[in-house]
């Protein structure tokens, strides 16, 4: 739900302000790759209606955001292309190599799923780099990134709960480790987010 909220915040910003200033297209494209490689079981593995609908929402909204940033006449103009310089392959290749080395089963679907877990953990990095270069971070962008970081932190709590409360729940070391790293990457952002919130000031990251 926090993940869904983050997407709603981002779409709200882009749609109402007709601007994607401070939003990293690189991070959005990495997320698109995360969802495509993770949800390859969309039609073969039915978990629940909720699960299927959320997968479709995550996939379609991410491609919608990318379309807005690349294709919409007004939104495209507000994109900070010169600042958003992080290279995709810098993250994609190491994650692919890691997925080929550390996975639970050597099948195409499993390796791609593991890749998506690793890539998700670091997909925020281009956004954080852009954020640091952005002078005026608007509230919606700040809250968007906060929610995007919070959902994995909440997963950590959920994993602990499931581990102790669910009889047939098995240890998932790949997901847990990647989730911990993903949350840790946000630690610095969370610190400045709460600091600015407490002081009632505009969010600003130190250079």
């Amino acid at each position: 739900m926090t993940h869904l909220a983050s997407i709603c915040l981002l779409l709200l910003k882009i749609h109402t302000m007709k601007s994607c200033a401070g939003v990293s297209l690189k991070t959005q494209e990495l997320y698109a790759l995360v969802f495509v490689t993770r949800y390859l079981d969309l039609f073969s593995n039915f978990v629940s209606m909720y699960n299927t609908i959320m997968k479709i929402i995550f996939l379609s909204s991410t491609f919608g955001i990318i379309w807005y940033m690349r294709g919409h006449k007004l939104v495209r103009q507000s994109y900070d292309k010169e600042q958003d310089t992080f290279r995709h392959y810098f993250l994609v290749i190491p994650c692919m190599v890691l997925a080929l080395v550390i996975h639970s089963k050597f099948t195409l679907l499993e390796v791609l799923w593991t890749f998506s877990i690793y890539l998700e953990a670091v997909a925020i990095l281009p956004q954080l780099v852009l954020l640091q270069r952005t002078r005026n971070i608007d509230n919606l962008t700040g809250n968007y990134i906060f929610c995007l970081g919070a959902y994995r932190a909440l997963y950590l709590l959920n994993w602990i709960y499931r581990y102790f409360m669910e009889k047939n729940y098995h240890a998932q070391w790949i997901t847990w480790m990647a989730g911990m790293i993903q949350t840790a990457i946000y630690a610095d952002f969370f610190y400045y987010y709460f600091k600015s919130w407490k002081k009632n000031e505009r969010l600003k990251l130190p250079a």
Partner: peptide
Amino acid sequence: HLTESEKDEL
């Protein structure tokens, strides 16, 4: 039971 390949999370 739930194994790594029976994924129920998003």
